[in-house]
Design a protein around this nucleic acid. Structure first.
Length: 407
DNA sequence: TCTGGGGTCCTAGGACCC
DNA sequence: TCTGGGGTCCTAGGACCC
């Protein structure tokens, strides 16, 4: 251990959802397990036993069934996964206060200066953390330890599955330079295409490419790209950024493509009511309501309207959504998927309209409905507004009484 | 093969204000 | 009458991540 050196550990659970299923259903251990929703969806996670058959996440379920028909297919249970996730990060926080959660199954922690606390060097501490996750949760996690965030993350990729890799700064450059460019976090399908077209295939190729060319190809992002490629990533680990979320969203793929807009609206309205309930539960309001529609041909449109003040009321959200719905939906094409997004989060306005004293009553009604649904399930109450405001072909969506930003 | 659901961040143009 | 530049907000679209 050298003074002044940073030690960043990236921890990533292996095949997280599938591993949790195997942990809570021991009879699934050593079996191919595939987690994913309906037959119109994709694979959310595949156990390593299933991956041997070529199954991987984001693959259509239909295809996974063909490749591995004897696999155990399970619907995802996100509440259980969230519970395991919390327990994993709680273990990490026992070893360092600087833990950053970047997704349900992975995060970073800063182990610089933990020597005195743990009487052990960082790689030893990293090893203990992974062991504790394994023994207490019954799932495997992999780790990468390096002097930078991106180095740590790429090291995890090399360590998987169920491994730990320490990239010493002196060797990091050598090890990483041979990796393909799409190992760099942020380089996806599109950026990869561009890079490959210019014969920039490895991280080393990237460091040999002129700044000007990269700037032309990727604009401001090129600086970040070069920092990561050359090992000069100075981004630090910031604890607890998960608290300040920016939006809530829900999407649903219909069971079959349809032109039945009454049905499409009722699905949309249910998503909106569930989201608004989450706002109320978290004591938040949203100022921007967004609507997304995807057609059978996979074209999609996303539209949004910002209100004057953040709201958490079903009625206001539904009324705004209703405008968007009527402005957006094409009657020429079959609908495949709809989505709702609430953003521009802030404290909910207590009363948005001084001239409409009935508003507080709606807020009270929303809360009563929330309580009933929490106890008896969502279906227990059908809110009139979800079904009353139906799409109307003869109107352009100018619902009277709707307040919106002057435009 | 036939493509989910939850998010974040970035860009760019137009409106509007100073 | 013709003209500037900067800042901020809104909206749409797209890339990316797990």
């Amino acid at each position: 251990m050298k003074p002044g050196r940073r030690y960043i550990l990236h921890v990533d659970a292996d095949a997280f959802f599938a591993s949790v299923e195997q942990a809570i259903h021991p009879e699934l251990k050593a079996l191919p397990v595939i987690v994913g929703g309906s037959d119109r969806g994709v694979v959310s996670a595949a156990s390593y036993e299933a991956r041997r058959f070529g199954v991987h996440s984001a693959m259509p379920i239909v295809q996974a069934r063909k490749l591995c028909p004897h696999a155990v297919f399970r619907d995802p249970d996100f509440r259980v996964y969230a519970e395991f996730s919390h327990r994993m990060f709680d273990i990490m926080r026992k070893y360092s206060p600087i833990v950053e959660v970047t997704s349900v199954d992975e995060g970073y922690m800063d182990l610089t200066g933990t020597l005195r606390l743990h009487k052990a060097p960082p790689w030893e501490v990293a090893h203990r953390i992974l062991s504790e996750i394994r023994s207490t949760l019954g799932i495997n996690a992999s780790g990468g330890l390096a002097g930078t965030r991106s180095g740590a993350k790429m090291a995890t990729g090399l360590a998987k599955p169920n491994g730990l890799l320490y990239l010493e700064p002196e060797l990091a450059g050598q090890v990483l330079s041979a990796l393909p460019v799409d190992w760099i976090p942020g380089v996806g399908k599109k950026a990869l295409e561009v890079l490959q077209w210019h014969r920039i295939l490895t991280i080393e190729d990237l460091t040999c490419t002129s700044r000007e060319l990269l700037r032309r190809l990727f604009g401001r992002w090129s600086e970040r790209l070069l920092e990561i490629a050359s090992g000069n990533d100075l981004k630090i680990v910031r604890p607890d950024t998960s608290g300040d979320r920016k939006s809530y969203s829900k999407e649903r793929t219909l069971e079959a493509d349809t032109r039945d807009l009454v049905h499409v609206w009722s699905v949309t309205a249910v998503l909106a009511e569930k989201l608004a309930a989450r706002l109320r539960e978290d004591g938040k309001g949203a100022r921007t309501v967004g609507f997304k529609i995807r057609y059978a041909d996979f074209t999609e449109t996303i539209r949004s309207i910002s209100l004057r003040a953040p709201t958490d009321g079903n009625r206001e959200v539904l009324e705004t959504l209703y405008i968007l719905f009527n402005q957006t939906v094409s009657r020429q094409k079959k609908v495949r998927q709809v989505g709702v997004r609430l953003s521009g989060l802030g404290a909910p306005a207590l009363q948005t309209n001084l001239f409409d004293p009935s508003r507080p009553l709606y807020r009270e009604r929303d809360r009563v409905v929330d309580r009933i649904r929490k106890r008896f399930g969502f279906q227990a109450v059908e809110v009139a507004s979800a079904t009353a405001g139906r799409p109307d072909a003869t109107r352009s969506g100018n619902n009277p009484g709707i307040r919106r930003m002057a435009s």
